[in-house]
């Protein structure tokens, strides 16, 4: 090999950089985040049912929140009819946070893990200490 020192050191730097996720996470368990559902409000519910199914909420809650934002703030509609026909008041603080008041154990679990910084708390009051 010619110029072996430069070529191999360049190749070495590239390999170290490209394998970053493999060595950065060595020795870490990397367990999946577990949003907690054990708030007093949820435990009092006879039927533990959110406004949508769990898979739907896990993947699409941000889209639902955006729809609710548009309905409430722009169109003045405050009633949401869920797929099962149940009616909910469209309000982050009065509906969502009534059950999910544990922001640190619920919202932040996945958001921190995935480095997501939603703008909710720019306007809304974050539930603290509950």
């Amino acid at each position: 090999m010619y110029n072996a020192r430069s070529i191999l050191s360049g190749l070495g730097v590239f390999l170290v950089l490209i394998t970053f996720p493999f060595w950065y996470n060595v020795g870490k368990s990397a367990a999946a985040p577990e949003p907690k559902l054990d708030t007093p409000a949820i435990q009092q519910l006879s039927r533990k049912q959110c406004v949508g199914s769990t898979p739907y909420m896990r993947a699409n809650h941000m889209q639902l929140l955006e729809e609710w934002r548009t309905l409430a703030v722009r169109e003045g509609k405050r009633v949401y009819e869920a797929a099962d026909g149940k009616k909910y008041e469209i309000s982050l603080e009065k509906t969502c946070l009534k059950c999910h008041g544990n922001k640190a154990q619920f919202c932040d679990q996945c958001h921190n893990s995935l480095s997501v910084k939603p703008d909710c708390w720019n306007c809304h009051v974050a539930p603290e200490g509950r």
Binding site: A32, R58, A59, M62, Q63, S113, L114
Partner: peptide, 8 residues
């Protein structure tokens, strides 16, 4: 959308 938490 997919469940990004599961993706991670």
């Amino acid at each position: 959308r997919v469940d990004v938490s599961a993706v991670k």
